[in-house]
Design a protein around this nucleic acid. Structure first.
Length: 916
RNA sequence: GCCCCGGUAGCCCAAUUGGUAGAGGCAGCUGGCUUAAAACCGGCCAAGUAUGGGUUCGAGUCCCAUCCGGGGCACCA
């Protein structure tokens, strides 16, 4: 028998599939379609285990759907614009285009070893001018129709990256890529009006997405219901505020504006001006992070007053940085009695606290005596016409006091009902080179002109220098020099687009790369859209996944799917709802974390140094160290020459002297301190932590089929978990077992036929189980079922208890079910006895009769405790089961002297006799 | 601080609508093969489900509280 040699098998089949065009997907209206999509990678240059974990199970799912009879599209491409290419250009003096092309080439080669059914003829790379031509075109379309606009706003500026960032790219006041603080700046930039779609984006009714991701998007959009209220100021202007609690307006005793608010100048008295100016200057100089880290509530009085519209009272206007210019109107009414932040501010600055909600069944609150804001149930009080209206904890109009207050505001012309969102418009400008150019020019008066379609694409110039740190586009004369439509001189826009723009429409790019008249061929779109199953990482929950939904909705509203809808109708398919959402179903894989590793056991000799030691000699030992050592134990951590060694009474700090000797018996030659292995915790893989698992090494050792199998078997896919280098052997044994089952001829024994029924039952139960599990992304349990079948078959072969026919059915079914997971090995075995590819074959047919059990094991309980187990015919009815149970001598034993009160029968499973 | 998800053999991980806690894998033990080891083949072992209460004939599953781990949001008016 030929030994299982994954190296030759896998390479041979990858080449043959390619040559046969097995994974070309073409429109075929006679068959149902399935568009399976997995997130495209950034071409960083090396495929890591995370890519395998994301892509190969997605591939198995796509293959499974193909075996279910679907015409499957499963494309792949590269999200190839972005900062790392530019950093490489600066650090290594390589042009981003060359660096990127090299990485794509390398990753494509690595990706082929995964054995995925990617249709490479449909590959796109977002940095390819043939692709970004359409990214620009979408921008132009959006700009012409008011979806894109240029506006001034307070934006996040990263000094490190020399660019602005979208709100979504800033976490805790720090840029999410580098962790460096960002500062707030007023700048004129390009935005997309994603806020126009806020309400529609909150509607997940038509899509099957994970709850957690829907929740993250809901939180991000942050819809809150309330009212806009206008406070008049002496100059005649009004300060508009947004509040979710208009019912507490009568308790608004002061106002707070964001320091950047436009009315601050007007309101500030001469007396207060120096303090206000100083505070504003101080705020502007601080980063978002520093503002957040502030413990207390700082702020200064402007000297100005505004009129509370509900009672005509003059309330002082303050500025404070706890009010953000970027949320609501940048101004709040402060109700210290019922809002904790306002309460703290009032306390810090000696402002009036006026309670206007009285807790249920209690005396009215005393503002001077309160220790915290009251935010509970109660009734309105000291609120003029609304006294006595109850308040609950519901949001918006669902709260009677809020509803009454809104009605009052409307009737008295003091405000209006309003909805506010946390979501801001999507800032897409980036002051970088390696991105899609923005097709706009500015004439000599600074007027914007969007380029006509025949001017596209604006191509990035190749001859650029990256020395200054600024985008080379800003100093590239030939690029800068442009003209308006009527041929007046103009300056070209030098900002490029956020790379999330490129990935917002790539699912349409795959439909027809190279198509000329439009971003995609409507005939392809009519058949393939929408994406039926999307897979990818949850880290994109509020960026890519929100942007692409917005993008599709905006495209729909601008009519970019109209031709496709027409084509759909022509083929008899109803386009209703087909273009409201880009991805009908989404599943998110978890993350593979680094493997836990014990550190070396070390013995050290040296001089005491405070609580620790200065080591002159460090030796790696087995178990306990020599008795004369100063200290011995596991190396828990090490940074440079400072080690933390687990001593008998806890961690001990050890400095390794410059001239210390380090001896590591397993590493010959001279050793140094950096070769000592320290304990690794379970955490994300990263090069700096040294816990990266290289898939190429695993593929070389075990083969892609084993790696694929193991990634699907070893984890709950949507959860992920730490890598474990031991357990992959189990998956490898499984693959080898199946290989042997397929290669070794089956010899029926003397008792052939006796085991037929049992093996067929196992086979068909497995078909049902695996089909269900693969459908629902439960690859781990599906594979466990296949391993069980393997065990049954090994036993059957050993005993020779089944006929050759039944054996053949079992083997064929096993190969078919394993084909999506281990495509190479199953193909090799399949083609030994079949014409054509196993990957074009159908999923085995489930035979319910064959799967049925003859007998069931009836569990008999007395008062909920198992007292007997009886095998009964599977077709027994409830009365039979009850009679069987009551006839059991064990039951009689346990009910002796008691009266049977009740008998509970669970059909086909259990009888519980209740007696006392 | 608020919101989600999770906690089951030594480890990873299963357990239809509440119905015998165990499918699968790893490790371990043991026998075979081998000069020996690895590999391979056969067999065996395993927890009462984080903790405390409740509902129920019956709870890993439902409810309440607490602890631990992971994730998201966070001066959001």
């Amino acid at each position: 028998m030929a030994k299982y040699d994954h190296r030759s098998i896998e390479q041979v089949w990858q080449e043959r599939w390619e040559a046969e065009g097995l994974y070309r997907s073409e429109v075929d209206w006679s068959r149902p379609k399935h568009y399976a999509l997995t997130m495209l990678p950034y071409p960083s240059g090396d495929l890591h285990i995370g890519h395998w974990y994301a892509m190969t199970p997605s591939d198995a799912r796509a293959r499974f759907m193909r075996m279910q009879g679907y015409n499957v599209l499963f494309p792949m491409g590269f999200d190839s614009f972005g900062l790392p290419a530019e950093n490489a250009a600066i650090q290594r003096n390589i042009h981003p285009a060359i660096w990127t092309a090299g990485n794509i080439e390398r990753m494509r080669t690595q990706m082929r070893t995964m054995g995925c059914m990617f249709d490479w003829e449909r590959e796109v790379a977002s940095s390819d001018p043939g692709y970004y031509r359409w990214t620009e075109w979408f921008f132009a379309e959006f700009a012409r129709n008011g979806v894109a606009y240029r506006g001034e706003a307070t934006v996040n500026w990263s000094e490190t990256l020399q660019t602005v960032l979208a709100n979504e790219q800033v976490i805790d006041g720090k840029d999410e890529r580098t962790g460096q603080p960002v500062v707030q700046r007023r700048m004129e930039q390009w935005f997309f009006k994603i806020t126009d779609y806020a309400d529609e984006l909150l509607d997940f009714g038509s899509i099957d997405w994970p709850e957690s991701i829907k929740l993250m998007q809901r939180n991000w959009i942050g819809r809150s219901e309330g009212a806009h209220v206008d406070f008049a100021v002496p100059s005649g202007s009004t300060i508009r505020v947004f509040t979710t609690r208009p019912d507490t307006l009568w308790g608004a005793t002061f106002m707070v504006l964001a320091p950047e608010h436009e009315l601050v100048d007007e309101l500030t008295s001469d007396e207060q001006r120096p303090a206000v100016e100083a505070y504003r200057a101080e705020t502007a100089a601080r980063t978002e992070l520093e503002r957040l880290e502030d413990e207390g509530k700082t702020g200064v009085f402007t000297g100005g007053y505004a009129t509370n519209p509900v009672n005509g009272e003059q309330v002082p206007v303050w500025i404070a940085d706890y009010v953000l210019m970027g949320y609501g109107t940048g101004a709040i009414m402060a109700v210290p009695a019922h809002d904790q932040r306002d309460f703290e501010f009032a306390h810090a600055h000696g402002l009036t606290i006026a309670p206007v909600i009285t807790p249920e069944g209690a005396e009215p609150l005393d503002g001077g005596a309160m220790e915290a804001a009251y935010v509970g149930l109660g009734t309105m009080s000291a609120s003029g016409p609304l006294d006595g209206v109850p308040t609950n904890l519901e949001k918006g109009r669902a709260n009677p006091s809020v509803a009454a207050a809104i009605d009052w505001l409307v009737e008295n012309d003091a405000g209006e009902e309003a909805v506010n969102y946390r979501l801001r418009d999507w800032l897409i400008s980036r002051q970088r080179y390696w991105g899609s150019p923005i097709p706009a020019v500015y004439d000599e008066d600074g007027e914007i002109e969007i380029l006509a379609d025949d001017q596209l694409p604006v191509v990035l110039p190749d001859d650029v220098e990256f020395s200054s740190g600024r985008s080379p586009l800003t100093t590239h004369q030939p690029f800068l020099e442009a003209a308006t439509r009527d041929n007046r001189p103009a300056r070209r826009e030098t900002d490029t687009m956020d790379t999330f723009m490129c990935s917002s429409w790539y699912q349409y790019g795959y439909l027809s790369p190279g198509f000329d008249g439009a971003p995609f061929d409507p005939e392809e779109a009519a058949y393939w859209l929408p994406v039926d199953q999307y897979t990818g990482g949850a880290e994109h929950a509020v960026m890519h996944l929100l942007y692409t939904r917005f993008f599709t909705k905006a495209m729909r509203d601008l009519g970019h799917f109209d031709t496709a809808a027409e084509a759909m109708r022509a083929h008899g398919r109803d386009p209703e709802g087909a273009f409201d959402e880009p991805m009908r179903a989404l599943r998110s894989q978890g993350q593979i974390l680094g493997e836990e590793r014990p550190g070396d056991s070390v013995a050290i000799w040296g001089e005491p140094d405070g609580d620790g030691w200065i080591a002159s000699r460090v030796v790696v030992v087995d178990g306990e160290g020599p008795a004369d050592a100063a200290l011995a134990g596991e190396l828990r951590r090490r940074t440079e020459r400072t080690m933390q060694v687990a001593g008998p009474d806890g961690p001990v700090r050890v400095e390794v002297a410059e001239d210390a000797t380090v001896e590591i018996p397993s590493i010959p030659g001279e050793n140094d301190v950096t070769q000592l292995k320290h304990h690794l915790e379970i955490q994300r893989m990263s090069k700096s932590k040294g816990n990266v698992v290289n898939p190429d090494v695993l593929v070389d050792q075990y083969g892609a089929d084993t790696v694929r199998t193991h990634l699907m078997f070893g984890y709950d896919w949507e959860k992920g978990g730490p890598w474990d280098s031991q357990t992959i052997t189990g998956s490898h044994r499984f693959i080898q077992d199946v290989w042997r089952l397929g290669m070794e001829a089956y010899e029926p024994g003397a008792k052939a036929g006796e085991g037929d029924r049992a093996l067929r039952r196992a086979v068909h139960q497995t078909i049902a189980k695996v089909g269900h599990d693969f459908e629902s992304f439960a690859f781990n349990t599906g594979l466990a079922a296949l391993m069980t079948l393997r065990n049954e078959m090994l036993a059957a072969r050993k005993s020779g208890s089944v006929t050759a026919e039944v054996w053949g059915e079992a083997l064929e079914s096993l190969l078919l079910m394993l084909a999506p997971v281990a495509p190479h090995m199953t193909e090799e075995l399949w083609r030994r006895s079949h014409e054509g590819s196993i990957h074009a074959a159908a999923w085995p047919t489930f035979d319910e009769e064959a799967a049925a059990e003859d007998t069931i094991r009836l569990v008999v309980q007395v008062n909920g405790k198992v007292r007997d187990q009886i095998d009964v015919p599977a077709d027994s009815n409830d009365a039979d089961l009850e009679a069987t149970a009551l006839a059991s001598p064990r039951v009689a034993e346990w009910t002796d002297g008691k009266t049977v009160r009740k008998v509970i029968v669970v059909p086909g499973r259990l009888v519980n006799v209740v007696a006392n």
